[in-house]
Amino acid sequence: MNNEATLNHGHSHRDDLGSKMGMWLFLLTELLLFGGMFILYASYRYMYADNFKVAAMHLDTLIGSVNTILLLTSSLTVALSIAALQRKQTRFSVYLLLFTIVAGGAFLVNKYFEWSAKIGHGIYPKGPEMANLSDGEVIFYGLYYVMTGLHALHVIVGLVFIGFMVVFILKGKQTFDNFQRLENAGLYWHLVDIIWIFLFPLFYLIH
């Protein structure tokens, strides 16, 4: 593949396509990890359909919707940031990434208040309210904590990942013609977005 990129950077042994393939293979294992949990959700929902509807009514649709918009917008700014870097608009690219970090942080703050409210009502493993709930509702909240919790963990990892990219761009390690690491960070962030796209209707909108 003797294109221009190879001639200019032949000495650095870069393999952007290979790097991206590795990232995608990792992302697909993540998809199957969450996929297993979605199958668990589907199975229990099949068995306790009515209880799931009752439990879902107690989740705050507004917070869920706001968080969806936050994640979608943060995905947009990551995509725009790569486009900006390609156009050598380095400063704009960094601002877009910083916006992404703020939006992701706001998502986590909302999640904190949401979980705190539920825990305040005694809804947590072995919590006082759990004894009054049906089996299906207890399972629903168990899945809710595990799935949104694992997702929030991915948001935190994604934010750290993107934070590193800001540093790399500022240090000139990611540039207009060498941005595969930024693209991989973006792919990870978009995956986190996609998982939320499915979590949101399944937990908040099924009543």
Binding site: A5, T6, D16, A83
Partner: peptide
Amino acid sequence: MSENTHTQQHPGY
């Protein structure tokens, strides 16, 4: 084998 496929394309904002 460093095939940088994106240098050519600039997706629009």
